[in-house]
Amino acid sequence: MAWFESLGMALIDVLIAGLMLIVGLFPEALSAPFDYAFMQRALLTSILVGAICGLLSCFVVLKRWSLLGDAISHAVLPGVAIAYLLGWPFFIGAFLAGAVSALGIGALERHTRIKSDAAMGLMFTFAFALGVVIIGKIATNTHLMHILFGNVLGVQYPALMLTLFSGVVALVAVWVFYRSLVLYTFDPMQAQALGFNTSVVHYGLILLLTLTIVASLETVGIILVVAMLITPGATAHLLTDRLTTMMLLSVGTGILSAVLGLYLSFLFDVASGGAIVLVATALFAVALLAAPRHGLVGRWWRRRRGAAAMVP
């Protein structure tokens, strides 16, 4: 494992050096905060988290899985707590807890008459309550706050490595299984009729979602990660009618929100997770107003022109 770790560290250092070259192109006033090593790590983490969340958020939005994302992210909490108790790395506990609760939700909705939204609400509030109780016993409030709301300025190498690893896995998975994912999201029945194994695709996508959530924990925290899994995809969905374009736009807005949010949080000394999500929402608002086909202004304009054309 040691070579793996040093390889990861070296890769991170290379990436950071590359980023600093780009940051150096900006005027001094903008680039000054990134003289600090912790800001450099935070920048790389933010970019990675923005990109992974942006990518996955396309599927979350199109598959109407927003609530599921919310459920998994909350269900991660007891996993973090139990891992802490057992002395495991936190992400293993988080990943297991997220996966188990996603399976539990699936089992509840398949084998009982409970509807999926109730199944999710039930599972995630239970898991979250369990997490709050355990953490209350073993850790301080600041610790809890960091898990809940993230602390990107305090990111260290191990967390950065996890984020990088998750990013690579998510990218490769979406790339390799693009067709299955598209077909399963667009028309699950057709996917089945064409001989795709839809259960594998379904649970694979859930695991990918869980991985993304775990990777984003330290940056935006449990409560706000779901915003990064919804907002970039929703923004991009307003802007285009092509999936590949939507993915690029979504990754772009994800990265832009994360970087801008990080910068603003440093500048005004506010919580980074909150700042990132606020920027993402602001971008969404701009798209909602100004999107060419699906934007409110465009629609209003077309309606007015249409009404004018109808009057002789």
């Binding site: 667009f186 699950p188 029945m189 064409l194």
Partner: peptide
């Protein structure tokens, strides 16, 4: 046969996500 592509199927009630960004 389904995997071999022998059958094509048009469902009565499509499970299609019509808002999907696809031409």
């Amino acid at each position: 046969q389904r995997r071999a592509g022998v059958m094509a199927y048009m469902a009565q009630q499509e499970a299609v996500e019509w808002d999907f960004p696809i031409s």
